[in-house]
Amino acid sequence: MLVVDLLLALAALATAGQCLLLPGLFRAVANLMAFGLVMALIWVRLEAPDVALAEAAIGAGITGALLLTALGQLPASQRDIQPARDGLPRRIIPITILVLLITGMLWAAILGLPKPGLVEEVATLLPESGAEHAVTALLLNLRGIDTLLEITVMLCAVATIWSLQQAIPPPTLSHYYPGLPTLARWLHPLFLLMFSYFLWQGTHAPGGAFPAGALLGAGGVLLLLTGSIAWMYQRAYNLLLRWLLAAGLLLFLITALAGLLMTGTLYGLPPRLAGYFIIAIEVATALSITLMLMTFYLFGRPGAQQ
C-alpha cells in the first residue's frame, strides 16, 4: 500500500504545483479541483471517510464551481493573466531554498509532535451523547459549540456577501442548451434521496449533516446555475430565504435555552432527549448549510427591484 500512498502524494504535489506555478487562471482552477479529488482519496487512505465525503463535495465540486462562476463574470482580458508577471518568478533559486528550508523545519516539527489522543474519553462519553457515530456525536453534542460557531461564521459570510452588491444573475445556459433546466429538475429527487440517506446514516456511520448539506448544496447549485429556481432571486421570497438561512443557528440557540430551562446549564440536555434534539439540529443544520452554499453563488443580495 505504500506504493499507492506514494502515487497519491505525488499526484497531490503535481496538481498543487501546477495550480500555483503555471500561468493561466482557468488551468489553475482546474488543477485545484483535481487536487481536491486527490485529497479526498488521501482522506480515505487515512481512514477519515467523513472528511473524504465533505472534501469530494465541497473541496472539489463546490469551491471549483464557485471559482469558475466568478471567473466567468470577468472579461477575457482578466482571465488570462500574463505569464511573465505571475508565472514562475525570476528569483527561483532563493525561493527554492526557502521552500526546502520551510519544508525541513515543518517536517521536523510535525514528526516531533506529541500525539495526545482523546479516543478513550470520547468512547466513554458516546453512550450519553445521543448518536452512535463518534464524529456526529462530537459535532452535535460533545463539541457542539464548534458547530454553532461554524454555522455563525457561514451566516456572517452570507451577510457580508449580501452587503456588497446586488445579486449577479446566473449565466443563461438554457438559451443554447434548452433542456438543461429540465434535466436538473429531473435529477433533483435523487439528490434529495441521497441527502436523506446521509442524514439517516450519520447517526451510526460516516455521514451526517455536513456531507448531506454539501451534497444537497451541490444539487441546488446545479438548479441555480441552470436557472431552474427563480424564487431565490425574487423579492417576494426574500424574507422566507432569510428565515431558512437562519434556521440552523436558531435551532441551536433554542436547544441551548431548552437545556438552560430543563437542567439549569446551557446545553445541559437530559440524555434521554438528546437523541431527538440531535436529529432536529442535524436536519436544520444540513438545510441551512445547503441554502448558504447556494447563496454563495449569488455573489450579492437577491431581491432587488428590477
Partner: peptide, 10 residues
Amino acid sequence: VYSGLWWVIT
C-alpha cells in the same frame, strides 16, 4: 421508483 432507489442507495 423513489423507494426502489432508496433501497438501492442504502
